[in-house]
Protein backbone atom coordinates (compact mmCIF):
# COMPACT_ATOMS: atom_id res chain seq x y z
CA UNK A 1 0.00 0.00 0.00
CA UNK A 2 2.69 2.43 1.11
CA UNK A 3 4.81 1.87 -1.97
CA UNK A 4 1.75 2.25 -4.18
CA UNK A 5 1.12 5.60 -2.55
CA UNK A 6 4.70 6.66 -3.05
CA UNK A 7 4.54 5.75 -6.73
CA UNK A 8 1.32 7.68 -7.39
CA UNK A 9 1.76 11.09 -9.01
CA UNK A 10 -0.34 13.64 -7.11
CA UNK A 11 -3.14 14.66 -9.45
CA UNK A 12 -4.40 18.15 -10.03
CA UNK A 13 -7.60 19.73 -8.84
CA UNK A 14 -8.87 17.09 -6.43
CA UNK A 15 -9.34 14.59 -9.20
CA UNK A 16 -8.11 11.74 -7.00
CA UNK A 17 -11.55 10.45 -6.17
CA UNK A 18 -11.11 6.95 -7.51
CA UNK A 19 -12.03 4.28 -5.04
CA UNK A 20 -13.89 6.81 -2.89
CA UNK A 21 -17.38 6.08 -1.63
CA UNK A 22 -18.31 2.79 -3.17
CA UNK A 23 -22.03 3.03 -3.75
CA UNK A 24 -24.44 3.49 -6.60
CA UNK A 25 -23.91 7.21 -6.76
CA UNK A 26 -20.28 6.72 -7.58
CA UNK A 27 -19.39 5.32 -10.94
CA UNK A 28 -16.04 4.21 -9.58
CA UNK A 29 -17.95 1.48 -7.73
CA UNK A 30 -18.24 -0.16 -11.11
CA UNK A 31 -15.09 0.90 -12.90
CA UNK A 32 -12.69 0.50 -10.01
CA UNK A 33 -13.36 -3.25 -10.05
CA UNK A 34 -10.18 -3.38 -12.08
CA UNK A 35 -10.19 -5.53 -15.17
CA UNK A 36 -6.95 -7.03 -16.36
CA UNK A 37 -4.67 -4.15 -17.26
CA UNK A 38 -2.09 -6.15 -19.19
CA UNK A 39 -1.86 -9.31 -21.27
CA UNK A 40 0.02 -10.96 -18.44
CA UNK A 41 -2.87 -10.39 -16.05
CA UNK A 42 -5.37 -11.57 -18.66
CA UNK A 43 -3.34 -14.73 -19.21
CA UNK A 44 -3.35 -15.37 -15.45
CA UNK A 45 -7.15 -15.00 -15.30
CA UNK A 46 -7.65 -17.41 -18.20
CA UNK A 47 -5.03 -19.73 -16.73
CA UNK A 48 -6.93 -19.86 -13.44
CA UNK A 49 -10.12 -20.84 -15.28
CA UNK A 50 -8.32 -23.61 -17.17
CA UNK A 51 -6.79 -24.82 -13.91
CA UNK A 52 -10.14 -24.90 -12.09
CA UNK A 53 -11.93 -26.64 -14.97
CA UNK A 54 -9.08 -29.12 -15.33
CA UNK A 55 -9.17 -29.88 -11.62
CA UNK A 56 -12.96 -30.34 -11.78
CA UNK A 57 -12.59 -32.66 -14.77
CA UNK A 58 -10.01 -34.83 -12.97
CA UNK A 59 -11.94 -34.82 -9.67
CA UNK A 60 -15.22 -35.77 -11.36
CA UNK A 61 -13.57 -38.54 -13.38
CA UNK A 62 -11.74 -40.00 -10.37
CA UNK A 63 -14.65 -39.70 -7.92
CA UNK A 64 -17.13 -41.05 -10.52
CA UNK A 65 -19.80 -38.50 -9.66
CA UNK A 66 -22.83 -39.31 -11.79
CA UNK A 67 -23.08 -37.07 -14.83
CA UNK A 68 -26.73 -36.26 -14.04
CA UNK A 69 -25.51 -34.63 -10.83
CA UNK A 70 -22.45 -32.93 -12.19
CA UNK A 71 -21.39 -33.40 -15.83
CA UNK A 72 -17.74 -33.30 -16.86
CA UNK A 73 -16.61 -29.84 -18.05
CA UNK A 74 -15.53 -31.48 -21.32
CA UNK A 75 -19.05 -32.85 -21.84
CA UNK A 76 -20.52 -29.39 -21.21
CA UNK A 77 -18.21 -27.74 -23.73
CA UNK A 78 -18.83 -30.49 -26.28
CA UNK A 79 -22.58 -30.01 -25.89
CA UNK A 80 -22.23 -26.24 -26.19
CA UNK A 81 -20.09 -26.28 -29.32
CA UNK A 82 -21.63 -29.22 -31.20
CA UNK A 83 -25.31 -28.55 -30.42
CA UNK A 84 -25.23 -24.75 -30.39
CA UNK A 85 -26.85 -24.20 -33.83
CA UNK A 86 -29.81 -26.56 -33.32
CA UNK A 87 -30.34 -26.78 -29.55
CA UNK A 88 -29.31 -23.40 -28.15
CA UNK A 89 -29.21 -20.69 -30.82
CA UNK A 90 -33.01 -20.59 -31.50
CA UNK A 91 -33.69 -20.17 -27.77
CA UNK A 92 -30.87 -17.69 -27.30
CA UNK A 93 -32.52 -15.61 -30.03
CA UNK A 94 -35.84 -15.66 -28.17
CA UNK A 95 -34.19 -14.54 -24.92
CA UNK A 96 -32.25 -11.80 -26.74
CA UNK A 97 -35.42 -10.50 -28.40
CA UNK A 98 -37.22 -10.34 -25.04
CA UNK A 99 -34.24 -8.72 -23.40
CA UNK A 100 -33.61 -6.09 -26.08
CA UNK A 101 -37.32 -5.40 -26.68
CA UNK A 102 -38.20 -5.01 -23.01
CA UNK A 103 -35.01 -3.18 -22.16
CA UNK A 104 -35.34 -0.68 -25.00
CA UNK A 105 -38.88 0.19 -23.89
CA UNK A 106 -38.06 0.23 -20.16
CA UNK A 107 -34.79 2.16 -20.42
CA UNK A 108 -36.21 4.79 -22.78
CA UNK A 109 -39.21 5.44 -20.55
CA UNK A 110 -36.93 5.37 -17.49
CA UNK A 111 -34.53 8.03 -18.78
CA UNK A 112 -37.25 10.31 -20.14
CA UNK A 113 -39.27 10.03 -16.93
CA UNK A 114 -36.19 10.73 -14.81
CA UNK A 115 -35.29 13.79 -16.87
CA UNK A 116 -38.84 15.15 -16.60
CA UNK A 117 -39.75 14.47 -12.98
CA UNK A 118 -36.46 15.75 -11.53
CA UNK A 119 -37.48 19.16 -12.90
CA UNK A 120 -40.53 19.11 -10.64
CA UNK A 121 -39.47 18.31 -7.06
CA UNK A 122 -43.07 18.02 -5.87
CA UNK A 123 -44.04 15.51 -8.58
CA UNK A 124 -40.84 13.63 -7.86
CA UNK A 125 -41.70 13.34 -4.16
CA UNK A 126 -45.13 11.88 -5.00
CA UNK A 127 -43.94 9.46 -7.68
CA UNK A 128 -40.72 8.15 -6.10
CA UNK A 129 -42.41 5.69 -3.66
CA UNK A 130 -44.17 4.04 -6.58
CA UNK A 131 -40.94 3.75 -8.53
CA UNK A 132 -39.30 2.22 -5.45
CA UNK A 133 -42.19 -0.23 -5.29
CA UNK A 134 -41.48 -1.24 -8.89
CA UNK A 135 -37.76 -1.52 -8.21
CA UNK A 136 -38.14 -3.72 -5.15
CA UNK A 137 -40.99 -5.98 -6.30
CA UNK A 138 -39.71 -8.98 -8.28
CA UNK A 139 -41.39 -8.52 -11.63
CA UNK A 140 -41.34 -12.28 -12.30
CA UNK A 141 -44.24 -12.41 -9.86
CA UNK A 142 -46.38 -10.57 -12.41
CA UNK A 143 -45.68 -13.01 -15.21
CA UNK A 144 -48.54 -15.50 -14.46
CA UNK A 145 -50.93 -12.54 -14.43
CA UNK A 146 -49.56 -11.22 -17.71
CA UNK A 147 -49.83 -14.69 -19.27
CA UNK A 148 -53.54 -14.74 -18.44
CA UNK A 149 -53.86 -11.52 -20.38
CA UNK A 150 -51.49 -12.13 -23.30
CA UNK A 151 -51.10 -15.89 -23.46
CA UNK A 152 -47.85 -17.84 -23.89
CA UNK A 153 -46.36 -15.28 -26.26
CA UNK A 154 -43.32 -13.03 -26.05
CA UNK A 155 -45.47 -10.10 -24.90
CA UNK A 156 -45.76 -10.93 -21.17
CA UNK A 157 -42.02 -11.54 -20.97
CA UNK A 158 -41.15 -8.32 -22.79
CA UNK A 159 -43.44 -6.42 -20.43
CA UNK A 160 -41.82 -8.09 -17.42
CA UNK A 161 -38.33 -7.14 -18.68
CA UNK A 162 -39.46 -3.55 -19.27
CA UNK A 163 -40.97 -3.38 -15.79
CA UNK A 164 -37.81 -4.76 -14.22
CA UNK A 165 -35.25 -2.67 -16.09
CA UNK A 166 -37.17 0.59 -16.52
CA UNK A 167 -37.52 1.62 -12.86
CA UNK A 168 -33.93 0.61 -12.19
CA UNK A 169 -32.72 2.87 -15.02
CA UNK A 170 -35.07 5.60 -13.90
CA UNK A 171 -34.04 5.70 -10.26
CA UNK A 172 -30.34 5.89 -11.13
CA UNK A 173 -30.85 8.43 -13.92
CA UNK A 174 -32.92 10.55 -11.52
CA UNK A 175 -30.02 10.56 -9.06
CA UNK A 176 -27.87 11.79 -11.93
CA UNK A 177 -30.26 14.52 -13.02
CA UNK A 178 -30.55 15.70 -9.41
CA UNK A 179 -26.80 16.44 -9.42
CA UNK A 180 -27.17 20.09 -10.22
CA UNK A 181 -24.03 22.16 -10.25
CA UNK A 182 -25.24 25.73 -9.84
CA UNK A 183 -21.89 27.24 -10.84
CA UNK A 184 -21.96 25.39 -14.17
CA UNK A 185 -25.58 26.32 -14.78
CA UNK A 186 -24.69 29.94 -14.00
CA UNK A 187 -21.81 29.70 -16.47
CA UNK A 188 -24.14 28.58 -19.25
CA UNK A 189 -26.73 31.18 -18.23
CA UNK A 190 -24.07 33.92 -18.37
CA UNK A 191 -23.77 33.18 -22.11
CA UNK A 192 -27.55 33.42 -22.43
CA UNK A 193 -28.25 29.66 -22.52
CA UNK A 194 -31.87 28.53 -22.84
CA UNK A 195 -33.40 25.95 -20.49
CA UNK A 196 -33.03 23.37 -23.25
CA UNK A 197 -29.35 24.22 -23.77
CA UNK A 198 -28.75 23.98 -20.04
CA UNK A 199 -30.31 20.53 -20.14
CA UNK A 200 -28.34 19.23 -23.11
CA UNK A 201 -25.01 20.91 -22.33
CA UNK A 202 -24.90 20.81 -18.52
CA UNK A 203 -27.53 18.64 -16.85
CA UNK A 204 -27.30 15.69 -19.20
CA UNK A 205 -23.48 15.39 -19.23
CA UNK A 206 -23.50 15.72 -15.43
CA UNK A 207 -26.11 12.94 -15.19
CA UNK A 208 -24.48 10.67 -17.77
CA UNK A 209 -22.29 8.65 -15.37
CA UNK A 210 -25.31 7.74 -13.27
CA UNK A 211 -27.42 7.06 -16.36
CA UNK A 212 -24.80 4.55 -17.51
CA UNK A 213 -24.77 2.88 -14.08
CA UNK A 214 -28.58 2.67 -14.28
CA UNK A 215 -28.45 1.26 -17.81
CA UNK A 216 -26.05 -1.45 -16.69
CA UNK A 217 -27.96 -2.46 -13.56
CA UNK A 218 -31.20 -2.29 -15.56
CA UNK A 219 -29.81 -4.57 -18.28
CA UNK A 220 -28.71 -7.16 -15.74
CA UNK A 221 -32.10 -7.01 -14.00
CA UNK A 222 -33.68 -7.38 -17.42
CA UNK A 223 -31.67 -10.54 -18.12
CA UNK A 224 -32.64 -12.04 -14.75
CA UNK A 225 -36.29 -11.26 -15.37
CA UNK A 226 -36.27 -12.57 -18.95
CA UNK A 227 -34.86 -15.93 -17.84
CA UNK A 228 -37.16 -16.07 -14.81
CA UNK A 229 -40.21 -15.29 -16.94
CA UNK A 230 -39.29 -18.06 -19.37
CA UNK A 231 -39.00 -20.48 -16.48
CA UNK A 232 -42.41 -19.48 -15.15
CA UNK A 233 -44.28 -19.66 -18.39
CA UNK A 234 -43.08 -20.06 -21.91
CA UNK A 235 -42.57 -22.59 -24.67
CA UNK A 236 -39.12 -21.36 -25.58
CA UNK A 237 -36.19 -19.24 -24.48
CA UNK A 238 -33.10 -20.19 -22.47
CA UNK A 239 -35.01 -20.17 -19.15
CA UNK A 240 -37.56 -22.60 -20.50
CA UNK A 241 -34.75 -24.81 -21.80
CA UNK A 242 -33.10 -24.85 -18.38
CA UNK A 243 -36.30 -26.38 -16.98
CA UNK A 244 -36.61 -28.74 -19.93
CA UNK A 245 -33.06 -30.14 -19.80
CA UNK A 246 -33.06 -30.56 -16.03
CA UNK A 247 -36.34 -32.50 -16.27
CA UNK A 248 -34.72 -34.67 -18.94
CA UNK A 249 -31.64 -35.04 -16.67
CA UNK A 250 -29.42 -33.89 -19.53
CA UNK A 251 -27.18 -31.90 -17.31
CA UNK A 252 -24.47 -31.14 -19.88
CA UNK A 253 -27.07 -29.17 -21.87
CA UNK A 254 -28.29 -27.51 -18.67
CA UNK A 255 -24.78 -26.34 -17.82
CA UNK A 256 -24.15 -25.26 -21.40
CA UNK A 257 -27.10 -22.89 -21.05
CA UNK A 258 -25.86 -21.63 -17.68
CA UNK A 259 -22.56 -20.88 -19.43
CA UNK A 260 -24.38 -18.96 -22.18
CA UNK A 261 -26.28 -16.93 -19.60
CA UNK A 262 -23.10 -16.15 -17.69
CA UNK A 263 -21.52 -15.03 -20.95
CA UNK A 264 -24.46 -12.70 -21.62
CA UNK A 265 -24.22 -11.19 -18.13
CA UNK A 266 -20.48 -10.62 -18.41
CA UNK A 267 -20.92 -9.13 -21.90
CA UNK A 268 -23.44 -6.64 -20.51
CA UNK A 269 -21.03 -5.68 -17.76
CA UNK A 270 -18.07 -5.42 -20.13
CA UNK A 271 -20.05 -3.32 -22.60
CA UNK A 272 -21.11 -0.77 -20.00
CA UNK A 273 -17.68 -0.80 -18.42
CA UNK A 274 -16.30 0.20 -21.82
CA UNK A 275 -19.01 2.83 -22.35
CA UNK A 276 -18.37 4.20 -18.88
CA UNK A 277 -14.63 4.43 -19.43
CA UNK A 278 -15.17 6.13 -22.78
CA UNK A 279 -17.81 8.67 -21.81
CA UNK A 280 -17.38 9.29 -18.13
CA UNK A 281 -13.64 9.06 -17.58
CA UNK A 282 -13.69 12.79 -16.74
CA UNK A 283 -15.10 12.13 -13.31
CA UNK A 284 -13.18 9.03 -12.25
Amino acid sequence: MASELRETIPTFGGAEREGGDVDLTNWSAVTSTGFAKSWGEAALIVGLAVLLLGAAEIFLRVSQVKSYIFPLPSEVFTALFTRFPDLFWPHLQVTLIELFGGYLIGATIGIVLAAVITQFPFVEKIITPYILLLVTTPMIALVPLLILQFGFTLTPRIIAVALASGPMVMINAATGFRRTDLAKIALARSYGASTFQIFTKIRFPLALPMIIVGLMVGAIFGLLTAVGAEMVGGKNGLGNQLMFWSSMVKMQNFYAIILLLALMGVSIYAFFYWVGKKWTSWQA
Binding site: K184, L187, Y191, W282
Partner: peptide
Amino acid sequence: EIGMIFQDANLLPWRNLRQNILFPFEIK
Protein backbone atom coordinates in the same frame (compact mmCIF):
# COMPACT_ATOMS: atom_id res chain seq x y z
CA GLU B 1 -21.22 42.71 -23.64
CA ILE B 2 -20.56 41.15 -20.23
CA GLY B 3 -18.20 38.27 -19.58
CA MET B 4 -17.97 36.49 -16.26
CA ILE B 5 -15.02 34.70 -14.68
CA PHE B 6 -15.98 32.42 -11.80
CA GLN B 7 -14.38 31.02 -8.68
CA ASP B 8 -12.31 27.87 -9.27
CA ALA B 9 -12.20 28.34 -13.08
CA ASN B 10 -15.53 26.51 -13.49
CA LEU B 11 -14.44 24.55 -16.54
CA LEU B 12 -16.73 21.75 -17.72
CA PRO B 13 -14.81 18.60 -16.73
CA TRP B 14 -16.24 16.50 -19.58
CA ARG B 15 -14.83 18.82 -22.25
CA ASN B 16 -11.22 19.29 -23.20
CA LEU B 17 -9.62 22.73 -23.04
CA ARG B 18 -10.52 23.69 -26.60
CA GLN B 19 -14.12 22.51 -26.26
CA ASN B 20 -14.34 24.54 -23.05
CA ILE B 21 -13.12 27.66 -24.81
CA LEU B 22 -15.61 27.14 -27.63
CA PHE B 23 -18.48 26.63 -25.14
CA PRO B 24 -19.68 30.29 -25.26
CA PHE B 25 -19.80 30.13 -29.07
CA GLU B 26 -21.84 26.94 -28.90
CA ILE B 27 -24.36 28.49 -26.51
CA LYS B 28 -24.54 31.74 -28.44
